[in-house]
Amino acid sequence: MSDMALKQEDVREEPPANLWRDAWYRLKQNRMALTSLVIILALAFIAVFGPWLTPYDFLSQDLIARNQPPAWAHPFGTDELGRDVLSRVIYGTRTAFIVAISVTAVATLIGIVLGAFAGYFGGLLDRFVMWFTDMTMSVPQLLLVVVINASLKPPLARWMEAQYLETLNPIYRNSIIIDFVLVFGSMALITWPPYARLVRAQVLSVRNRPYVTAARALGLSTPVIIARYIVPNALGPLIVAVSAGLGTAMVLESAFSFLGIGVNPPMPSWGNMIADGLRVWRNYPHLLLAPAMMLAVATVAFSFLGDGLNDALNPRGQK
Protein backbone atom coordinates (compact mmCIF):
# COMPACT_ATOMS: atom_id res chain seq x y z
CA MET A 1 0.00 0.00 0.00
CA SER A 2 2.75 2.37 0.95
CA ASP A 3 4.46 1.83 -2.37
CA MET A 4 1.26 2.67 -4.16
CA ALA A 5 0.89 5.76 -2.04
CA LEU A 6 4.21 7.01 -3.34
CA LYS A 7 3.78 6.12 -6.93
CA GLN A 8 2.23 9.32 -8.07
CA GLU A 9 3.38 11.66 -5.39
CA ASP A 10 6.75 11.43 -7.04
CA VAL A 11 5.32 13.51 -9.83
CA ARG A 12 5.29 16.57 -7.54
CA GLU A 13 8.77 17.96 -7.81
CA GLU A 14 9.21 21.53 -6.78
CA PRO A 15 11.80 23.31 -4.75
CA PRO A 16 10.69 23.12 -1.15
CA ALA A 17 8.72 26.27 -0.56
CA ASN A 18 8.77 28.35 2.56
CA LEU A 19 5.96 30.55 3.77
CA TRP A 20 8.15 33.66 3.82
CA ARG A 21 9.44 32.86 0.36
CA ASP A 22 5.89 32.29 -0.82
CA ALA A 23 4.87 35.61 0.67
CA TRP A 24 7.76 37.30 -1.12
CA TYR A 25 6.63 35.63 -4.35
CA ARG A 26 3.10 36.90 -3.89
CA LEU A 27 4.39 40.38 -3.04
CA LYS A 28 6.41 40.40 -6.25
CA GLN A 29 3.23 39.65 -8.19
CA ASN A 30 1.66 42.79 -6.76
CA ARG A 31 2.93 45.69 -8.89
CA MET A 32 1.63 48.43 -6.64
CA ALA A 33 3.24 46.93 -3.57
CA LEU A 34 6.51 46.33 -5.37
CA THR A 35 6.64 49.88 -6.74
CA SER A 36 5.87 51.16 -3.25
CA LEU A 37 8.69 49.09 -1.84
CA VAL A 38 11.13 50.54 -4.36
CA ILE A 39 9.97 54.09 -3.54
CA ILE A 40 10.33 53.46 0.17
CA LEU A 41 13.80 52.00 -0.26
CA ALA A 42 14.77 55.02 -2.36
CA LEU A 43 13.43 57.40 0.30
CA ALA A 44 15.26 55.46 2.98
CA PHE A 45 18.45 55.74 0.96
CA ILE A 46 17.95 59.50 0.72
CA ALA A 47 17.28 59.68 4.45
CA VAL A 48 20.39 57.71 5.39
CA PHE A 49 22.79 59.34 2.97
CA GLY A 50 21.15 62.76 3.08
CA PRO A 51 24.21 64.72 4.30
CA TRP A 52 26.23 63.43 1.34
CA LEU A 53 23.48 63.98 -1.20
CA THR A 54 22.41 67.50 -0.47
CA PRO A 55 23.85 70.04 -2.88
CA TYR A 56 23.76 72.74 -0.18
CA ASP A 57 23.71 72.98 3.56
CA PHE A 58 20.08 73.02 4.55
CA LEU A 59 20.71 76.00 6.80
CA SER A 60 22.86 78.10 4.56
CA GLN A 61 20.97 81.16 3.52
CA ASP A 62 21.49 83.00 0.31
CA LEU A 63 19.60 86.22 0.73
CA ILE A 64 20.28 87.24 -2.82
CA ALA A 65 18.66 84.15 -4.29
CA ARG A 66 15.41 84.16 -2.29
CA ASN A 67 12.19 82.54 -3.48
CA GLN A 68 13.80 81.29 -6.67
CA PRO A 69 11.65 79.06 -8.85
CA PRO A 70 13.07 75.65 -9.71
CA ALA A 71 16.17 75.91 -11.85
CA TRP A 72 19.36 73.93 -12.51
CA ALA A 73 21.18 75.46 -9.58
CA HIS A 74 18.23 74.78 -7.23
CA PRO A 75 16.09 71.96 -8.69
CA PHE A 76 13.27 72.67 -6.24
CA GLY A 77 14.00 76.36 -6.02
CA THR A 78 14.81 78.30 -2.85
CA ASP A 79 12.69 79.51 0.05
CA GLU A 80 12.17 82.98 1.42
CA LEU A 81 15.51 82.88 3.21
CA GLY A 82 17.24 81.65 0.07
CA ARG A 83 17.77 78.14 1.40
CA ASP A 84 17.87 75.30 -1.10
CA VAL A 85 14.50 73.53 -0.99
CA LEU A 86 15.85 70.24 -2.33
CA SER A 87 18.38 70.08 0.50
CA ARG A 88 15.67 70.90 3.00
CA VAL A 89 13.32 68.30 1.57
CA ILE A 90 16.09 65.73 1.83
CA TYR A 91 16.63 66.64 5.46
CA GLY A 92 12.89 66.54 5.91
CA THR A 93 12.96 62.96 4.65
CA ARG A 94 15.59 62.24 7.27
CA THR A 95 13.37 63.73 9.95
CA ALA A 96 10.35 61.82 8.71
CA PHE A 97 12.17 58.48 8.73
CA ILE A 98 13.86 59.02 12.07
CA VAL A 99 10.57 59.97 13.67
CA ALA A 100 8.52 57.29 11.92
CA ILE A 101 10.93 54.48 12.68
CA SER A 102 11.61 55.42 16.29
CA VAL A 103 7.99 56.14 17.08
CA THR A 104 6.77 52.93 15.48
CA ALA A 105 9.51 50.94 17.17
CA VAL A 106 8.62 52.32 20.61
CA ALA A 107 4.88 51.95 20.01
CA THR A 108 5.28 48.40 18.70
CA LEU A 109 7.45 47.46 21.63
CA ILE A 110 4.90 48.79 24.12
CA GLY A 111 2.20 47.04 22.14
CA ILE A 112 3.99 43.68 22.02
CA VAL A 113 4.78 43.66 25.71
CA LEU A 114 1.33 44.73 26.90
CA GLY A 115 -0.56 42.74 24.26
CA ALA A 116 1.40 39.53 24.70
CA PHE A 117 1.10 39.59 28.49
CA ALA A 118 -2.58 40.39 28.35
CA GLY A 119 -3.25 37.73 25.74
CA TYR A 120 -1.16 35.00 27.27
CA PHE A 121 -2.09 35.38 30.91
CA GLY A 122 -5.62 36.68 30.47
CA GLY A 123 -7.73 37.29 33.54
CA LEU A 124 -7.39 40.44 35.59
CA LEU A 125 -4.16 41.55 33.91
CA ASP A 126 -5.87 41.30 30.54
CA ARG A 127 -8.81 43.34 31.72
CA PHE A 128 -6.59 46.05 33.20
CA VAL A 129 -4.37 46.31 30.12
CA MET A 130 -7.35 46.47 27.80
CA TRP A 131 -9.03 49.07 29.96
CA PHE A 132 -5.87 51.15 29.86
CA THR A 133 -5.68 50.69 26.09
CA ASP A 134 -9.24 51.80 25.59
CA MET A 135 -8.69 54.80 27.83
CA THR A 136 -5.68 55.87 25.81
CA MET A 137 -7.57 55.46 22.56
CA SER A 138 -10.48 57.51 23.78
CA VAL A 139 -8.38 60.59 24.54
CA PRO A 140 -8.21 62.96 21.55
CA GLN A 141 -4.73 62.57 20.07
CA LEU A 142 -4.08 66.19 19.38
CA LEU A 143 -5.11 67.20 22.87
CA LEU A 144 -2.82 64.63 24.42
CA VAL A 145 0.15 65.79 22.39
CA VAL A 146 -0.50 69.42 23.23
CA VAL A 147 -0.75 68.56 26.90
CA ILE A 148 2.44 66.53 26.83
CA ASN A 149 4.23 69.30 24.99
CA ALA A 150 3.01 72.00 27.28
CA SER A 151 3.69 70.14 30.47
CA LEU A 152 6.97 68.47 29.61
CA LYS A 153 8.76 70.95 27.43
CA PRO A 154 9.60 73.62 30.04
CA PRO A 155 10.92 71.21 32.71
CA LEU A 156 12.89 69.30 30.08
CA ALA A 157 14.38 72.52 28.76
CA ARG A 158 15.29 73.58 32.31
CA TRP A 159 16.89 70.22 32.97
CA MET A 160 18.94 70.48 29.76
CA GLU A 161 20.03 73.98 30.73
CA ALA A 162 21.09 72.79 34.14
CA GLN A 163 23.00 69.88 32.64
CA TYR A 164 24.78 72.26 30.29
CA LEU A 165 25.80 74.57 33.08
CA GLU A 166 27.15 71.65 35.02
CA THR A 167 29.00 69.83 32.24
CA LEU A 168 29.42 72.49 29.56
CA ASN A 169 28.71 69.71 27.09
CA PRO A 170 27.35 71.42 23.91
CA ILE A 171 24.98 68.55 23.32
CA TYR A 172 22.70 69.98 26.03
CA ARG A 173 22.34 73.23 24.13
CA ASN A 174 20.83 71.49 21.14
CA SER A 175 17.13 72.28 21.32
CA ILE A 176 16.43 69.85 18.46
CA ILE A 177 16.94 67.02 20.90
CA ILE A 178 14.11 68.32 23.06
CA ASP A 179 11.89 68.47 20.00
CA PHE A 180 12.66 64.93 19.00
CA VAL A 181 12.29 63.48 22.47
CA LEU A 182 8.96 65.19 22.92
CA VAL A 183 7.73 64.24 19.48
CA PHE A 184 8.82 60.63 19.81
CA GLY A 185 7.48 60.33 23.28
CA SER A 186 4.10 61.88 22.72
CA MET A 187 3.53 60.14 19.40
CA ALA A 188 4.56 56.76 20.75
CA LEU A 189 2.18 57.31 23.66
CA ILE A 190 -0.76 57.83 21.37
CA THR A 191 0.02 55.21 18.72
CA TRP A 192 0.69 52.08 20.78
CA PRO A 193 -2.89 50.96 21.54
CA PRO A 194 -3.67 49.43 18.12
CA TYR A 195 -0.48 47.37 18.33
CA ALA A 196 -1.35 46.13 21.80
CA ARG A 197 -4.81 45.12 20.66
CA LEU A 198 -3.48 43.39 17.57
CA VAL A 199 -0.81 41.46 19.45
CA ARG A 200 -3.29 40.43 22.11
CA ALA A 201 -5.80 39.22 19.53
CA GLN A 202 -3.07 37.34 17.69
CA VAL A 203 -1.75 35.67 20.81
CA LEU A 204 -5.27 34.76 21.85
CA SER A 205 -6.14 33.19 18.53
CA VAL A 206 -2.82 31.42 17.99
CA ARG A 207 -2.81 30.16 21.56
CA ASN A 208 -5.97 28.20 20.84
CA ARG A 209 -4.90 26.84 17.48
CA PRO A 210 -4.91 23.06 17.30
CA TYR A 211 -1.20 22.93 16.56
CA VAL A 212 -0.48 24.57 19.88
CA THR A 213 -2.62 21.93 21.59
CA ALA A 214 -0.78 19.35 19.52
CA ALA A 215 2.55 20.74 20.71
CA ARG A 216 1.34 20.50 24.31
CA ALA A 217 0.33 16.92 23.64
CA LEU A 218 3.88 16.21 22.50
CA GLY A 219 4.99 17.21 25.99
CA LEU A 220 6.87 20.35 24.92
CA SER A 221 7.47 23.03 27.56
CA THR A 222 5.76 26.41 27.59
CA PRO A 223 8.78 28.53 26.54
CA VAL A 224 9.40 26.22 23.57
CA ILE A 225 5.76 26.46 22.57
CA ILE A 226 5.75 30.26 22.79
CA ALA A 227 9.00 30.67 20.88
CA ARG A 228 8.40 28.09 18.15
CA TYR A 229 4.65 27.92 17.76
CA ILE A 230 3.02 31.12 18.97
CA VAL A 231 5.41 33.94 18.09
CA PRO A 232 6.21 33.01 14.47
CA ASN A 233 2.54 32.56 13.68
CA ALA A 234 1.47 35.78 15.35
CA LEU A 235 4.06 37.85 13.47
CA GLY A 236 2.43 38.24 10.04
CA PRO A 237 -0.33 40.70 10.90
CA LEU A 238 2.06 42.69 13.07
CA ILE A 239 4.40 43.19 10.11
CA VAL A 240 1.49 44.50 8.08
CA ALA A 241 0.44 46.82 10.87
CA VAL A 242 3.97 48.15 11.33
CA SER A 243 4.29 48.89 7.62
CA ALA A 244 1.05 50.82 7.59
CA GLY A 245 1.95 52.39 10.93
CA LEU A 246 5.18 53.86 9.54
CA GLY A 247 3.14 55.82 7.01
CA THR A 248 0.72 56.97 9.67
CA ALA A 249 3.57 58.08 11.90
CA MET A 250 4.98 60.20 9.06
CA VAL A 251 1.63 61.92 8.58
CA LEU A 252 1.33 62.49 12.31
CA GLU A 253 4.79 63.96 12.54
CA SER A 254 4.04 66.31 9.64
CA ALA A 255 0.72 67.27 11.15
CA PHE A 256 2.29 68.12 14.50
CA SER A 257 5.17 69.99 12.90
CA PHE A 258 2.67 71.84 10.76
CA LEU A 259 0.90 72.93 13.91
CA GLY A 260 4.18 73.90 15.49
CA ILE A 261 4.08 71.33 18.25
CA GLY A 262 6.42 68.92 16.51
CA VAL A 263 9.81 69.45 14.97
CA ASN A 264 10.49 73.19 15.04
CA PRO A 265 12.44 75.33 12.62
CA PRO A 266 15.18 75.62 11.66
CA MET A 267 15.26 71.79 11.61
CA PRO A 268 13.42 70.92 8.39
CA SER A 269 10.41 68.67 8.51
CA TRP A 270 7.89 68.17 5.72
CA GLY A 271 5.24 69.41 8.07
CA ASN A 272 6.84 72.71 9.00
CA MET A 273 7.93 73.24 5.40
CA ILE A 274 4.32 72.83 4.33
CA ALA A 275 3.32 75.29 7.02
CA ASP A 276 5.87 77.79 5.72
CA GLY A 277 4.93 77.16 2.12
CA LEU A 278 1.25 77.54 2.76
CA ARG A 279 1.64 81.20 3.68
CA VAL A 280 3.10 82.08 0.29
CA TRP A 281 1.71 79.40 -1.99
CA ARG A 282 0.01 81.86 -4.30
CA ASN A 283 3.32 83.41 -5.27
CA TYR A 284 5.70 80.51 -4.75
CA PRO A 285 3.76 77.27 -5.15
CA HIS A 286 6.95 75.19 -5.32
CA LEU A 287 7.60 75.87 -1.64
CA LEU A 288 4.38 74.05 -0.77
CA LEU A 289 4.49 71.50 -3.55
CA ALA A 290 7.90 69.99 -2.87
CA PRO A 291 7.33 68.84 0.75
CA ALA A 292 3.65 68.05 0.15
CA MET A 293 4.54 65.78 -2.77
CA MET A 294 7.16 63.99 -0.71
CA LEU A 295 4.72 63.42 2.12
CA ALA A 296 2.01 62.20 -0.22
CA VAL A 297 4.31 59.84 -2.09
CA ALA A 298 5.74 58.38 1.11
CA THR A 299 2.43 57.77 2.85
CA VAL A 300 0.76 56.34 -0.24
CA ALA A 301 3.74 54.01 -0.72
CA PHE A 302 3.58 52.77 2.87
CA SER A 303 -0.13 52.25 2.62
CA PHE A 304 0.13 50.21 -0.59
CA LEU A 305 3.03 48.22 0.81
CA GLY A 306 0.90 47.45 3.85
CA ASP A 307 -1.95 46.23 1.66
CA GLY A 308 0.46 44.16 -0.42
CA LEU A 309 2.00 42.61 2.68
CA ASN A 310 -1.44 41.85 4.01
CA ASP A 311 -2.36 39.94 0.87
CA ALA A 312 1.03 38.27 0.69
CA LEU A 313 1.06 37.11 4.29
CA ASN A 314 -2.58 36.06 4.43
CA PRO A 315 -3.09 34.27 1.14
CA ARG A 316 -6.31 32.68 2.33
CA GLY A 317 -7.96 36.05 2.61
CA GLN A 318 -8.05 36.60 -1.13
CA LYS A 319 -9.58 33.33 -2.30
Partner: peptide, 28 residues
Amino acid sequence: RRELQIIFQDPYSTLNPRMTIGEAIAEP
Protein backbone atom coordinates in the same frame (compact mmCIF):
# COMPACT_ATOMS: atom_id res chain seq x y z
CA ARG B 1 2.83 13.17 27.88
CA ARG B 2 5.48 11.64 25.70
CA GLU B 3 4.10 8.13 26.18
CA LEU B 4 0.47 9.15 25.70
CA GLN B 5 0.00 10.66 22.27
CA ILE B 6 -2.84 12.02 20.20
CA ILE B 7 -3.68 12.29 16.50
CA PHE B 8 -6.23 14.96 15.66
CA GLN B 9 -8.99 15.16 13.12
CA ASP B 10 -7.60 17.96 11.03
CA PRO B 11 -3.95 17.28 10.30
CA TYR B 12 -3.57 20.66 8.65
CA SER B 13 -4.37 22.80 11.62
CA THR B 14 -2.36 20.64 14.01
CA LEU B 15 0.89 21.14 12.14
CA ASN B 16 2.71 24.42 12.65
CA PRO B 17 2.53 26.05 9.21
CA ARG B 18 5.97 27.61 9.68
CA MET B 19 7.81 24.36 10.30
CA THR B 20 8.93 21.84 7.74
CA ILE B 21 7.72 18.28 8.08
CA GLY B 22 11.21 17.24 9.13
CA GLU B 23 11.37 19.90 11.86
CA ALA B 24 7.93 18.97 13.12
CA ILE B 25 8.86 15.31 13.47
CA ALA B 26 12.29 16.06 14.90
CA GLU B 27 10.94 18.40 17.57
CA PRO B 28 9.75 15.79 20.09
